[in-house]
Every structure is written in structure tokens, then in C-alpha cells.
Amino acid sequence: MTGAASYQFRPVTMDDLPLLAAWRSTAHVRQWWGAFEPYSPEALSDARVARWIVSTAGRPFAFIQDYSVHGWDDHHFAALPEGSRGIDQFIGDPAMVGIGHGTAFIGARIRALFENGAPVVATDPHPDNARAIAVCRKLGFVPSGPPQETAWGPILPMLARRPGQ
């Protein structure tokens, strides 16, 4: 990958479900995300979560979602400042793994969230997902506590703060 790669983010639609199902069936995604449960139209219209298909050079290759950490009463990031966002993501296309796209597209999304006013961006990789944790660290995330068990499974809570805060 070159530093000149640019990324496009478009909202997930019902038409994307076969693509997401295919990506979620690959071993490298299924290991951390489990079986795919298709989104309903109601889930895709949930204002708490923005879900995106990521493309580069016209090629869709990844999924990222950002969400209000205050959208659920019992969310493990609910104590963060108002306006904070959480992120989850994966590269679906196995040919795009390990060549720098993850760091680049996640970094682009984080910058957009900060530009839109998020004071903190949180993420919660599985504590055993060394690749995801390494990418998060490269992007300025730091652990905000020890690994813990949540309603969504085991996590390592990590935070990145808007520059200057």
C-alpha cells in the first residue's frame, strides 16, 4: 500500500448484506466477530450507530461502525464525555489484510469523528487480538483499564483523545 491511498465511506444498506455475510464468513473475521446475523432495516436506521462500507480505488474491502457510547445505559464506555464515539471494524477482503489499509482507513475515520466534535474515540478489541491492538496503538489509542468481560464479550478498553484535549 502507498501513503497516497484514499478511502471512501458509504453507509451500509440492505443491498450490502450479502457482501457483509461473505466477509464475516472468512476465517480472519469470524475469529473475532463470530457468526453473521444480518441487519434488519430497523437496525440500519438506528441513529445511535453509523455503519460504513469502506472502499479504496473503487474496491469495497472493509466495514467500520461508529456509535454513541451513551446510546445504551449499561455500555462500558458510558462514563466518557458527551459526544464520545465508539468504533468497531474489520477488513473483509483477505487480500487487503496486513498491508497498512487498516491503520489508514481507521485513522481517516477517527480524524473525521474528531473533526465532527467527538472529544474521545473508544474501541474495544478482544484482548487476544494482537493485530487489532497494535493498529489501535499506532493510531494513538491507549488502554483505559484491564481486559474485562462485557455483554458483547471480552474486551480491552482503549481510548484516543482529540488532539489538544
Results as ranks from 00 to 15, higher is better:
2 T>I: 03
5 A>G: 01
5 A>V: 10
7 Y>F: 15
8 Q>M: 08
8 Q>L: 13
9 F>H: 07
10 R>A: 12
11 P>H: 14
17 L>C: 11
17 L>K: 11
18 P>G: 06
19 L>G: 07
20 L>G: 06
20 L>I: 13
24 R>W: 13
27 A>C: 09
31 Q>Y: 09
34 G>H: 12
35 A>E: 11
36 F>Q: 03
37 E>I: 15
38 P>K: 12
41 P>F: 12
41 P>D: 15
44 L>M: 14
44 L>Y: 13
45 S>I: 08
45 S>A: 15
47 A>Y: 09
47 A>N: 00
51 R>S: 06
52 W>S: 09
54 V>I: 11
54 V>Y: 02
57 A>F: 00
58 G>S: 08
66 D>Q: 02
66 D>W: 01
67 Y>D: 05
68 S>I: 02
70 H>V: 05
74 D>H: 05
79 A>G: 12
79 A>K: 14
80 L>R: 01
80 L>I: 01
82 E>N: 07
84 S>V: 01
87 I>W: 01
88 D>M: 04
89 Q>N: 13
89 Q>F: 08
90 F>I: 10
91 I>H: 04
94 P>K: 07
94 P>L: 09
97 V>N: 09
98 G>L: 10
100 G>R: 12
100 G>E: 00
100 G>W: 11
109 R>Q: 11
111 R>T: 14
113 L>Q: 00
115 E>P: 00
117 G>V: 04
120 V>W: 00
121 V>M: 00
122 A>Q: 02
123 T>E: 01
123 T>A: 06
124 D>V: 03
126 H>N: 15
126 H>G: 08
129 N>Q: 14
130 A>C: 13
132 A>I: 09
135 V>L: 15
137 R>W: 11
141 F>H: 04
141 F>L: 08
142 V>P: 02
145 G>M: 12
145 G>N: 12
146 P>E: 15
147 P>L: 14
149 E>N: 15
149 E>P: 05
150 T>Q: 10
151 A>G: 14
151 A>F: 05
151 A>Y: 03
152 W>G: 09
153 G>R: 08
153 G>Q: 07
153 G>M: 06
153 G>T: 10
153 G>N: 12
156 L>T: 03
160 A>W: 01
160 A>S: 05
160 A>D: 02
160 A>E: 01
162 R>T: 11
164 G>T: 10
165 Q>K: 05
